[in-house]
Computed example of a mutant assay.
Amino acid sequence: MKPNRGLLVVLSGPSGSGKGTVLKRAMQKNEQLELSVSVTTRAPREGEIDGVNYYFLTPEAFQNLLVEDGLLEWAEFCGNFYGTPREKIEQRLNEGKDVVLEIEVQGAMKVRAAFPDAVLIFNLPPSLEELKNRLIGRQTEPPEVVEKRMNTAVWELSQAENYDYVIVNDNVEDAANAFLSILSSEKCKTARNKALLAHF
């Protein structure tokens, strides 16, 4: 039997909510998960590697991808552009691989429009106060950028109801387990197992 098409999973959440940490732990526990590497026009942070964390592009190169319809979705966030390369994702899904997109709310809604069966998960911080403490604690941005991210976070949290699931990242291990439980449940849906049912 041909393998089921893989799950396209979207994980979003405010900057500083720890979605990357949750995803990293989930991928350690489930090696079948693949992270889609996004493209961005923002500068690399310390320790980030081109092609691993992001593909870091010039604004001109990003614009060329847009013109060629090479992005599944794209969004502007805090003055920088982010996008998801289309071709590789389609290929991996057709091979039965589960692909995770760690993207912003705007991009998630575009993915939902293009892939109605995508699984959208929103990563919540324990509280707004804790979120601000995490952003300040990173010491990667000046206070005015932290404030801008907090204002954006309030809007993003208002959009969480458009997602299929929410997880609270109060404890990374628990949040990663919740994330993996969602994927397990989705794989058992009858709508995703039509070939199996037809076999019987």
Results as ranks from 00 to 15, higher is better:
123 N>V: 09
72 L>E: 04
167 I>V: 13
57 L>S: 08
114 A>E: 05
70 G>W: 09
94 N>Q: 15
150 M>G: 06
80 N>G: 00
106 Q>Y: 02
102 E>F: 01
87 E>W: 13
56 F>M: 11
108 A>H: 00
53 N>W: 06
190 T>D: 14
138 R>M: 04
57 L>I: 06
161 E>T: 12
56 F>C: 07
182 I>Y: 02
75 A>D: 10
162 N>P: 02
45 R>P: 01
79 G>K: 11
171 N>A: 14
165 Y>N: 01
51 G>I: 04
133 N>Y: 08
173 E>F: 12
91 Q>V: 08
46 E>Q: 14
117 D>L: 12
129 E>D: 15
112 R>C: 05
91 Q>P: 06
47 G>W: 13
150 M>Y: 09
27 M>R: 15
47 G>M: 12
148 K>V: 01
104 E>I: 00
164 D>P: 04
185 S>M: 08
130 E>A: 15
51 G>A: 07
60 E>Y: 05
183 L>T: 10
195 A>L: 12
96 G>R: 06
116 P>Y: 11
130 E>Y: 04
25 R>F: 05
38 S>Y: 01
79 G>P: 04
153 A>G: 05
160 A>S: 15
6 G>L: 06
199 H>C: 09
27 M>F: 13
76 E>T: 10
91 Q>N: 03
171 N>C: 11
120 L>K: 00
162 N>V: 04
187 K>N: 12
79 G>N: 13
138 R>L: 02
138 R>K: 12
4 N>I: 07
69 D>Q: 15
45 R>H: 14
174 D>R: 15
141 E>D: 15
116 P>Q: 07
18 G>T: 03
139 Q>F: 03
20 G>Q: 03
188 C>G: 06
125 P>K: 09
86 R>G: 11
130 E>L: 14
99 V>Y: 07
59 P>L: 10
41 T>V: 08
132 K>I: 00
190 T>P: 10
44 P>Q: 11
12 S>F: 00
153 A>W: 01
145 V>L: 13
11 L>V: 14
155 W>D: 00
125 P>W: 00
44 P>I: 12
154 V>P: 00
30 N>V: 02
135 L>S: 09
70 G>F: 05
52 V>C: 10
39 V>E: 10
93 L>V: 10
34 E>H: 15
168 V>Y: 05
51 G>M: 07
187 K>R: 15
186 E>V: 10
85 P>I: 06
99 V>N: 07
106 Q>L: 08
105 V>R: 00
24 K>Q: 13
